[in-house]
């Protein structure tokens, strides 16, 4: 499944990194502790978080993640948007919470990769 397909399936808003929408998603990971993401997320994963800090983009780029979903309408810092745009990492937003978002991702076939 591509990032674009997930955007459509969950009605997510693309706020940066349009150029990365065709990337294939290998699985999902959810955490707001970036240290855990660095240790646990896998290449090509879709990351679900409430953090909007620029380090989110740094970590997504470091791990070559497919995209990041920022939940609960959590604010994203302008510099994060700018860096995500530069690196082509899609930043996707939703008003829904992490729990609901992950449940829907599971429904469309995205699971945690171990």
């Amino acid at each position: 499944m591509t990032v674009r397909e997930v955007v459509e399936a969950l009605s997510l808003r693309v706020v940066a990194g349009q150029s990365g929408l065709e990337q294939q998603i290998t699985g999902g990971y959810a955490s707001d502790l970036l240290s855990c993401v660095m240790a646990g997320a896998k290449t090509g994963n879709l990351w679900v978080t409430m953090q909007g800090h620029p380090n989110v983009v740094a970590v997504a780029s470091l791990l070559d993640l497919a995209a990041v979903v920022v939940t609960e309408g959590s604010p994203i810092e302008p510099i994060s948007l700018q860096r995500a745009e530069e690196k082509g990492i899609p930043l996707l937003t939703t008003e829904q919470g992490t729990f609901c978002t992950v449940a829907k991702l599971a429904q469309v076939g995205i699971h945690e990769t171990r």
Binding site: L34, S35, M38, P54, N55, A58
Partner: peptide, 15 residues
């Protein structure tokens, strides 16, 4: 520390 700390929460010193 594993909680409420720069490295646990933000992973690294921000650019």
């Amino acid at each position: 520390r594993p909680r409420y700390s720069l490295f646990a929460t933000l992973g690294m010193v921000p650019e």
